[in-house]
Amino acid sequence: MVLCDANVITNTCKFLNLNAPGDIAFLPSGEVILKTKSKEVKGFASVLESIIISQGNASHLVPSNPEELAQLRQWLEICITTVNFADSQSTAIKELNERLAKVNFLVGNRISVADAVLYYTIYPVLARATMHEKEQFCHLSRWFSTVQHLPKLKAGHETIAFSRNPLYSN
């Protein structure tokens, strides 16, 4: 299983209080498609982007200028190219952890849909990770433990425990 799956999309829609603008289906190759009346959109990031854009920019959760849109897109790209394999390749988590080193929130200085997508994508991996593993990925753990307390984001997901104090020597 890869991590960028339909659950992430439906959870993100819930987070934005949106209905997906069409049917979400999977191709045999594992790709996600969104079928609307007028067209088909293929690919996890593209599907999400078309959903987010259909929202307009009324909400503070979605990008309000080209800069923010570019940042959202690059995190979606990280999700599909790297995080997607985090349950089978630990280098994926290392890479993500590095990316988060200087970041409080993924886009701008507030929580946004980008955080939500990454949260839902990485959740299954962190839920299974041991304390030792979580401690190794300190930036990821810090970001995650910050965003997971937003009730709307959490939506039924259990809180994952992180240790504030290092338990291991390395």
């Binding site: 299983m1 890869v2 045999p28 190759s29 594992g30 790709e31 997607n84 394999f85 985090a86 349950d87 089978s88 390749q89 630990s90 988590i93 991996v125 299974r128 990770a129 041991t130 593993e133």
Partner: peptide, 12 residues
Amino acid sequence: PSAVKSQGSLKL
């Protein structure tokens, strides 16, 4: 991507 199996932890 669909061929990649899920593992219990981060280990290969």
